[in-house]
Computed example of a mutant assay.
Amino acid sequence: MQIIDVERFAADGFAKVEAVVARQVADAARDLLWQQIGLSPGEPSGWREPVVWASDMTGAGPFGEIMNSPRLHAAYDAVAGPGGWLPRGSLGMIPIRFPRLPPADDRGWHIDLNTQRPDGTWGTSARSQTMLLLILLSEVGPDDAPTRVRAGSHRDAFAVLGEEALAHTEAGPLVEAASRERPVVHATGEPGDVYLLHPYTVHAADEHRGTRPRFMSQGPVLLKRPVTGQGDSLLDRALR
């Protein structure tokens, strides 16, 4: 049985992989993040910011179980090709979005920085060296600030980008305008579910309209070969 629907990924530019780890593993990771930020799920009076950033930079404990999941690695193989990606040991940055607060001004449509320049800085180009990984660490329903995804937008964004690595402020308006007519899908699911996004899939944060804080990591998976539409991987074939 295929870990993802290959044809659907090629058409939509993303795939959901359910339960890369048991729910209790994601729950344990979330408990550690509550400790890290010094807040409590039982004391909403302390939730005063719409977004609080946490991180996992070590891959210890439940974080490592998630990142080393055979099911997750099989999903990488399916889209980047066996051996086409570099292992990622930690979840990286984790935005925690809180309900009942004015939303943060960070909900613009974009694709992530994907190309390292010779000086070590990063920009956005049509030679992506990364794909995007979203890991749900809490229940995420339609009202719980799910990431919004423009289905099929990977082809639109690729068409308007060139080989020059643009700044985020330059690339964002380009890909937003190019993908404006695409339908929007929400990245909902259960703790332990994962979304793999094609590097050119246009996406955005959403306002939190629910009642429970949303925990989700977002980070790049480095690729061994740039995604240019010329290779044999699913990432390349999805652009043709």
Results as ranks from 00 to 15, higher is better:
2 Q>Y: 10
3 I>T: 15
4 I>G: 10
12 D>V: 01
12 D>Q: 15
16 K>R: 15
16 K>Q: 13
17 V>M: 03
18 E>Q: 03
18 E>Y: 00
19 A>G: 05
19 A>N: 05
22 A>M: 13
22 A>L: 13
23 R>S: 01
24 Q>T: 13
25 V>M: 07
26 A>K: 07
31 D>L: 09
32 L>Q: 15
33 L>S: 07
34 W>N: 09
41 P>R: 14
43 E>P: 01
44 P>M: 10
45 S>V: 07
47 W>T: 12
47 W>Q: 11
48 R>G: 12
50 P>N: 12
53 W>Q: 12
55 S>E: 13
55 S>G: 06
55 S>F: 10
56 D>Q: 04
56 D>N: 08
58 T>A: 15
59 G>H: 02
59 G>Q: 02
59 G>V: 00
60 A>Y: 07
60 A>T: 07
61 G>N: 10
61 G>C: 05
64 G>L: 00
64 G>A: 05
68 N>P: 11
69 S>F: 01
70 P>M: 09
71 R>I: 02
72 L>E: 04
73 H>N: 09
74 A>N: 10
76 Y>V: 01
77 D>Q: 06
80 A>T: 04
83 G>W: 03
85 W>E: 06
90 S>Q: 08
94 I>C: 12
94 I>H: 10
96 I>M: 14
97 R>Y: 00
97 R>Q: 13
98 F>L: 14
98 F>I: 03
98 F>W: 03
100 R>L: 03
104 A>I: 02
104 A>G: 13
108 G>E: 14
109 W>K: 10
109 W>Q: 06
110 H>F: 13
111 I>M: 10
113 L>K: 15
115 T>H: 05
116 Q>N: 04
122 W>T: 03
125 S>L: 00
125 S>A: 12
126 A>C: 07
127 R>D: 09
128 S>P: 12
128 S>I: 01
129 Q>W: 08
131 M>P: 02
134 L>P: 08
134 L>D: 04
134 L>S: 13
134 L>I: 11
134 L>T: 06
137 L>Q: 11
137 L>C: 14
137 L>A: 12
138 S>M: 11
138 S>T: 12
140 V>T: 12
141 G>F: 01
142 P>W: 01
142 P>G: 09
143 D>G: 02
146 P>E: 08
148 R>L: 11
150 R>F: 06
152 G>Y: 03
153 S>D: 05
154 H>G: 15
156 D>M: 09
156 D>Y: 00
159 A>I: 00
160 V>D: 07
161 L>K: 04
161 L>P: 11
165 A>V: 00
168 H>Y: 14
169 T>Q: 15
169 T>M: 13
171 A>C: 04
171 A>M: 05
177 A>I: 00
177 A>S: 14
178 A>C: 03
178 A>L: 09
187 A>T: 12
189 G>Y: 04
191 P>H: 01
192 G>E: 04
194 V>R: 06
196 L>I: 13
198 H>M: 11
198 H>C: 11
199 P>E: 14
199 P>M: 15
200 Y>M: 07
201 T>Y: 07
201 T>D: 08
204 A>P: 00
205 A>E: 03
206 D>M: 10
211 T>M: 10
213 P>Q: 01
214 R>W: 00
214 R>T: 07
218 Q>M: 14
219 G>T: 14
219 G>D: 05
221 V>K: 08
221 V>H: 08
224 K>R: 15
229 G>R: 09
235 L>C: 12
237 R>G: 05
239 L>C: 07
